[in-house]
Design a protein around this nucleic acid. Structure first.
Lengths: 115, 115
DNA sequence: CTAATATGCAACCAGGAGGTTGCATATGAC
DNA sequence: GTCATATGCAACCTCCTGGTTGCATATTAG
């Protein structure tokens, strides 16, 4: 792996850590899951059924939006939030990379032990 | 989807949010990536090359360990840390589920628009 | 117009996160 | 045995997070 590639990997981690951080809260994870159904939902509706305040939900949505996981559009007096797939895919790719590297390492160890 | 299945999904989110939270820090993400190479590394060696203190790294490792992402074993005066694949796979599964649900929703929308 | 609804903004609060320093202790090397 | 190395523990600090309440504002409904 070239030095250039290694640097880009580090930059990649820096870019992606906030995505995981945004997902690292139960409330936000629930919101993401809810929005993965495809519909755009208002803050008021997202608050319904939660024990939290509307403002708390609003803050969580802002965190998700800052991480790019969600995007809100105004419609009349409402603000509708919908999922954004791209950062989710980025996060998946990171985890896949790590798991892949891990599997390779295990395979190498196994072949070393056996051979 | 039965109520029972829905409840288990909520419990699943509660269990998995801490994994994402643990990954949601650049330093910890770097540590995980480093350990995905397969070797067990001591705290001292993990600290080398970082601008942070050994104690800071130790704290991060503890967070990762609490999330189950990493496990440490004592060897002599050292404490060697290695990756644990299972929670990583759990996190991947969650992301896959969400992406899958999202794709289904998009497909449904598309077929609706197209007729 | 008036009332209800949906959101925005700001202040405030408690607790946790991330980091440091200092000192103690266990283990390995010579 | 002595010294260097690797780690543990505790106190402390600052800043951010997650949450609240209160009030202001915009928009839709009747």
């Amino acid at each position: 792996m070239s030095p250039a590639r290694h640097e880009s990997a580090v930059r990649e981690l820096r870019r992606h850590a906030p995505i995981f951080a945004a997902l690292g809260d139960e409330t936000r994870l629930k919101l993401v899951k809810r929005l993965s159904g495809g519909s755009r939902v208002s803050i008021a509706r997202l608050t319904q059924g939660s024990t939290l305040t509307r403002q708390a939900i609003t803050k969580h949505l802002r965190v998700l939006q800052d991480a790019g996981l969600v995007r809100g559009v105004r419609r009349g007096r409402e603000y509708l939030f919908g999922l954004e797939a791209e950062p989710l895919d980025d996060a998946r790719r990171i985890l896949d990379d790590i798991s892949r590297q891990w599997d390779v390492a295990l395979a190498r160890l196994k072949s070393f032990v056996e051979g």
